[in-house]
Amino acid sequence: MATTASDHGHDVAHDDHEHHPTAKTYWITFVLLAILTAVEVAWSYLGLSGPALVVPLILMMVVKFLIVGGVFMHLQTDLKVLNGYWFTLTFGTAVVLAVCVYIIVFAAFRWDI
């Protein structure tokens, strides 16, 4: 049953763990996330209101989202694996779709456009 194609498939199908980040990277990432969370919480206590409050919070949220997705879920390293961008592509499409669609709904309600 050893066929050429499946032999190569063997190399290909297993995206290599060698490409995954090291434990150290994971720890650093985690510290980064923890710091961001701390800043977020602190920011919410500054007594700001309106965009000054909301925009940075949203930005930090997005950054955290990207970090978890990129490092912990390996999207960033998967990009380097053969065709690994498909993971990013499907998931990314979903995220973009969801954000666009729901923002329109929200806008339609909030501002009666």
Binding site: T3, A5, G9, V12, H14, D15, L82, W86, F87
Partner: peptide, 16 residues
Amino acid sequence: EHYTSLGLSNMKLAMW
């Protein structure tokens, strides 16, 4: 492992 068109694991693709 077997030949797959994209060279990705079916399970992982499905999970994503």
